[in-house]
Write a protein that binds this DNA or RNA. Sequence first.
DNA 1: CGGGTGGTTGATACTTATCAATGGCTGTGG
DNA 2: CCACAGCCATTGATAAGTATCAACCACCCG
Lengths: 296, 296
Amino acid sequence: MTFVPSEKNRSKPAFDTIEFRRAELPSEPIVPEVRNVAQRQWTLSAGLLRNPDAESLPCLISCSGCLAKELGLCAGLNQKPETESDPRAAITLLTSSVHTIPARRTICHPKEWSEFIPIICHGWALSSIILPDGRRQILSFPLAGDLVSTASLLEPMSGRSVEAVTEVTYRKFKRSDLKAILFENPIFFENISKAWVEERTQSDQLALGLGRRSADERIARLILNLAERLAKRGMTNGQTMEFPLRQRHIADATGLTPVHVSKVMGEFQRAGLIEINSRSLTISDEAELRRVADWR
Amino acid sequence: MTFVPSEKNRSKPAFDTIEFRRAELPSEPIVPEVRNVAQRQWTLSAGLLRNPDAESLPCLISCSGCLAKELGLCAGLNQKPETESDPRAAITLLTSSVHTIPARRTICHPKEWSEFIPIICHGWALSSIILPDGRRQILSFPLAGDLVSTASLLEPMSGRSVEAVTEVTYRKFKRSDLKAILFENPIFFENISKAWVEERTQSDQLALGLGRRSADERIARLILNLAERLAKRGMTNGQTMEFPLRQRHIADATGLTPVHVSKVMGEFQRAGLIEINSRSLTISDEAELRRVADWR
DNA sequence: CGGGTGGTTGATACTTATCAATGGCTGTGG
DNA sequence: CCACAGCCATTGATAAGTATCAACCACCCG
């Protein structure tokens, strides 16, 4: 017995992007390409701003449910003051800046000591831990309105790696500003604690899934979970949604290999549970998918 | 393809205690047998109180590192006021009660709506999620000084099941009292946020382990992790420590089966990494165990 | 004693990983 | 515009890791 079950992993990268990941780690944070959202052209549509860059499915920007907005710290992208005297003009209490980065770019390095708290405004991100040998566990897919982690509110280093899945727009708040406001208005802790408890529940469920659920269950649950979160943001069209995740993402989120994910998703499609084409996913048989997922 | 990979699990309990677990869930919380610690006979030894009930290894009670003590909310078991006028007599700001329950008893039910925050004072507890079909994932083993979950500080329902591994002594604080003090003294949030970030790190590592590590790694890491935490509490004797966990506990913490845990631990012992006898564990070859664990 | 719990072991089955080959797609440079 | 290189998804063959099943023994503890 050697006790080195993953030696192969270590001597030889399991995935072809490992070298990239390794090289990426010690490098300096990439300076995000700054394109202030306010400078873009937006069209008002049904009370929501529509992103003119979105090509296929119209992708709506919604800040509803965003922690920063609930805390009154951010006026949101879709809440322009009606007039100069509109109180919402003063709502943005914190210094913050909006950034947009292309897909696959790193937003935050695990060892990066950042004085900013990023909140996703648009696009799909992922938050993960990466081992030196290249194994990666994705912990969450932050969508619009999500903090990467509530821990980032208070600690400058998350220990996590955050990267963009699609093009991502995010807003950076200065932590010291937020803390100052928080300690002056402890009532804000109620809001934060809500997010905190929510995150705790999610992470408990993640551990339960990784430790005790089968591959089918994990994948089905990931799909349903994402569908639910997208629906809450108005990012679904019936049972159809944009689905930019690569099978590698699903694999790293469920603790499986990309090959096995391909096989399971193939079975799901052949069984008529889901349909996938051109980066969009449709849940065709939700009841059965829920049953497979052992949902709720 | 049936998509019911765990049907066997469901139709027939995988473990013999499942029926017990099932029956236990909907029942009313068991009223803990109250034995006030103050009524026991304690002997002062090296500045720490020694539990007279402990038979084999002397088990020291230490509140150092306990969140409640750091917050100044609890004077601790080993810090009796010297005199009536000793300021420590007034330290216990919160109404709290001490309870002792025997091993294997449930401390808190997942759906229980409790107005109390339990903190472990003595013994080993476990915090887990249990699925209706009996599968269980242990999320942590709270030891002396540990909150079950920082989420319990603010929310009345943890969603977790907490039970005693050994006989457990714990202290219950009233949440409303704690909240009142917290909001009057926001500086306490600094302490709490520290615990929170710590917990977040632990839970990230748990997910990483369950998703991406082999059985050997997971078990070795669990042992090292516990050894480190016990050492911090002065509960080790060199490389030897009390180890009350059953293999079922290790299995449910690592996402494996008890049988496989037995095989791996057998290998570890035959390879001279650890020794186990009569509920105590010795790490014989720490360097090698760390290597197997892919530690740090 | 006797029954329940817990640990060990071997045989076997199942789930998932690994390896390898293929083809589609996309972006890039000549 | 085409050729080409990467990346991605798919598929089949095979291997490894872990689970399941069953039997047995060793304890405790009542």
